[in-house]
Amino acid sequence: MRDTVLRTEGLSRHFVLPRESLFRPGETVYALNGVDLNIEAGRSLGVVGESGCGKSTLARLCMMLDKPTAGRVEVLGQDLTKLSARELRRARARFQMVFQDPYGSLDPRHKVRRIVGETLDALSAADRMTTRDEAIARAIDAVGLRTNDLDKYPHEFSGGQRQRIAIARALVTRPALIVADEPVSALDVSVQAQVLNLMQDLQRDFGVTYMLISHDLGVVDYVCDDVAVMYLGLVVEHTSRAQLFARPAHPYTQALFEAMPRIGAGRRKRAVLQGNIGSQTKQHSGCAFADRCPRVQSRCVREKPDLRKIDNGHMASCHFA
């Protein structure tokens, strides 16, 4: 039995919008509606979905950058929602994050040495003194930059190199879990491949486990072992990458595959979903995907499907999967 790196139980986050009328309360955005996930050590999880599906909210909650409305987050068996601010700060050494925008996530006035080293402040003072310089040098080397890059400022680097710095910052405390929210979507294709290869190497060399958030099935497939597909704040399918790509079970997953542009497939009509993602301010009595689903039946509108086991290690929430 491998260690569980991350476990979420019934994780929900609802945001109340400012009221627009004196006589009505503000509307509620149901961003995340009860997500149960389990990531074992060494089995990276990819979270896929379109904007508004709650994948970034999920990432922020797992990092405790935001407090859940309900549910719990456990990293290595420790319930993060119960920790004091002080304890949480210490605990952060074990889980780190890489953000989407490598321009916005690095302080332009700090040198790389300080940016990468800052995360070490979360460690105890004793650890900090003895290993600081060594840890920084090791991290920067691991991401393929040179030690003399440590005395440069972020603006001296290209987008891909900046994302390497962001990864080094996450890596420096030797975390068990790195949550990466769209880490390559701001990069050009040729540079994206370099960063994805690096992420794969670090997984092997440092034993980090990723939770990788992406809208791109190809990216998730490349780095992760398991995939969770999200729609309107819920996980609708969760299985190994091999299963998902061989036998996608949920109609939404199938539509995502269908809509993915393919190189060399020739001119084709994409048999895609009609309409837009449903409203996040509405609570659904039935299946959240019902209004766009090509296979919808009356049961789907009435009855909410559970995320249930449909095959060995394959979960989907569809009445007809």
């Binding site: 040729s190 370099q194 099935l217 190809g218 061989a246």
Partner: peptide
């Protein structure tokens, strides 16, 4: 350099050295 779903596991993406 484009990752394709369903590619062989462990196959590395080819990259173009350097940046634009």
């Amino acid at each position: 350099a484009v990752p394709r779903p369903g590619a062989v596991r462990g196959a590395r993406l080819q990259t173009i050295a350097g940046t634009v």
